[in-house]
């Protein structure tokens, strides 16, 4: 069995001008691997939302894409404040983003719901004060 392909990206915190760079790079990498456009869209959208969340809330983090034979795994990890109430955070429209973030067009409370919507499986491991790791799977 072949070793799964891995891509590792660093997401810088507080930098909205480069937010989305990791997702754009991942999209290009998956395109080169020949995945169908819909799969690529789902992976890159889920990853972008996670990237934005890490920039807004966690001062950055890491994003890993692992390509398995029948699915793609996306692991987003940060050492941010954690999510106190995951159920509430998952509600569309609920947001704790500050006003300056909203003025950029973010903070609509759609990030986590979009991530769930565009993936086949999503697990949130979060500890308040320690950080959050989100693991998503997109079947290919």
């Amino acid at each position: 069995m072949s070793v799964p392909l891995k891509f590792h990206y660093i997401v810088s915190g507080g930098d909205f001008t480069s937010a989305g760079n990791a997702s754009v790079q991942a999209k290009k990498a998956l395109r080169q691997l020949g995945f169908d456009p819909e799969t690529i869209r789902r992976v890159s959208i889920a990853m972008y939302e996670g990237e934005i969340n890490m920039v807004i809330h966690a001062d950055g983090g890491t994003a890993d894409i692992i390509v398995y034979p029948d699915y793609i795994e996306i692991i987003l990890a940060d050492k941010g404040p954690g999510i106190p109430d995951v159920e509430l955070a998952m509600q569309a429209g609920y947001s704790t983003a500050p006003d300056n973030i909203r003025s950029l067009g973010f903070g609509a409370g759609m990030g986590l719901p979009n991530m769930k919507r565009y993936t086949d499986d999503m697990q949130i491991d979060t500890v308040v004060g320690e950080g959050t790791t989100i693991t998503m799977r997109v079947n290919t």
Partner: peptide
Amino acid sequence: MSNVNIVAVAMLRD
């Protein structure tokens, strides 16, 4: 919206 993030959204949504 005219900030730089529109480019990433446009790119990712094709």
